[in-house]
Simulated assay, not measured.
Amino acid sequence: MKALICGSIAYDNIMVFQGQFQDQILPDQIHMLNVSFLVPALRREFGGCAANIAYNLGLLGDTGYPMATVGHDFAPYGDWLRERGVPLDHVRELSESFTAVAYIMTDLADNQITAFHPGAMAHAHLNAVPAEAGLSWGMVSPDGRQAMIDHAEQFAAAGVPFIFDPGQGLPMFGAAELKRFIELADVVAVNDYEGKMLMQRTGLDEAQIAAQVRALVVTRAAEGSMILAGGERLEIPAAAPAAVVDPTGCGDAYRAGLLHGLMHGADWATTGRIASLMGAIKVESAGTQNHSFDRESFYTRYEASFGRQLHLGS
């Protein structure tokens, strides 16, 4: 099965602050904020939502096609993805731009501060969703502003169901645009903070959003996730990681699990648990694409995590 994942491909520079951000910020001085965080270690990783989700979907046995624009410095990343079976048919290289780059700092409470240079991603609207490509699902994840608008419309016009995953791109849109995304999408997936922002900007509550889509999915990190579908509210437990190493990319792994469940016709309780386990597996490894598993071990761990066997259609 094939999914088209519209979003970013980026180089990630990942740092860990050996404390908590809140201890370094004076609440009554945020109008003149001047803060420096010492980060003893720096890792450079391959990242970006589209590539991360496609990588994770590949681990589950499906084919995820990232659709993105990259820069002249993409070659090492492209080689990495090809070696791992991620197809690059819909990745466009722009010779006059850099590939997008993120600087991600995490504290010991798993809070994150991110600075992002879009580079070639700003031209992602040059790509278009193919009308006839045998796609079973699509996803609109954080990308260039116009690209997200265009690709949502194109998925709908092509009759391809898709997940709207605004992520860090949500602040770029006003109420009317966000309502249009919800109208076009089949699933809306946000984290708890993004969900509150989405409701604040649109004036819609959870039930009103869920009534327009197949499901509203809200992730809550270690507290699990919530899926509101068909008038039913499902509380999805978090799967326990063997160790908490790096939360960067956990949301992307979770979304790959959502796609996998949807592509194989699983019910929402099962789909949510697949996604939850994907997030737990990711958090055990540094970086966003350094974890791996085989099908048998995933099914075994699913049963151990949730006390039920995993059965999926073809």
Rank of each mutant, 00 (worst) to 15 (best):
L204T: 14
I53S: 03
A133G: 07
G287T: 03
A175R: 14
A10P: 01
A54E: 14
A102Q: 15
T219R: 14
D107R: 04
P27L: 01
F293C: 05
A3S: 11
Q22W: 01
D192M: 02
T270P: 02
H123Q: 12
P166S: 10
M121R: 01
V35C: 03
E303L: 07
G265Y: 10
M105E: 15
P166Q: 05
Q154D: 04
N290R: 14
E284A: 15
H90D: 03
A122K: 02
R82F: 07
A176C: 07
H123Y: 09
A286P: 03
D246E: 10
L33F: 01
G19I: 15
I274R: 05
P118H: 05
W80H: 10
Q289E: 04
Q18G: 07
V217R: 12
F21M: 08
D143G: 12
R201Q: 09
A207E: 05
A275T: 12
A115M: 05
G134C: 10
Q24S: 14
L178Q: 14
H125R: 02
Q29I: 08
Q20E: 15
H291G: 11
R92M: 10
L94M: 05
Q309C: 02
H117I: 13
Q29G: 14
E132V: 11
V218D: 10
K179R: 05
M148G: 14
A122Y: 04
A239C: 14
I227V: 11
F306E: 02
P118S: 09
P27H: 01
L135C: 01
D150H: 12
F298L: 00
K196A: 08
G313Q: 07
A185P: 12
I14L: 14
A10R: 04
S305L: 15
G265Q: 09
G48N: 11
Y302Q: 00
H117R: 15
P142W: 01
F21Y: 06
L259N: 05
Q29M: 09
V86S: 11
R220V: 15
G261C: 08
P87I: 13
A269V: 11
E284V: 03
M105F: 05
P171K: 00
V70T: 12
G195E: 08
A275P: 08
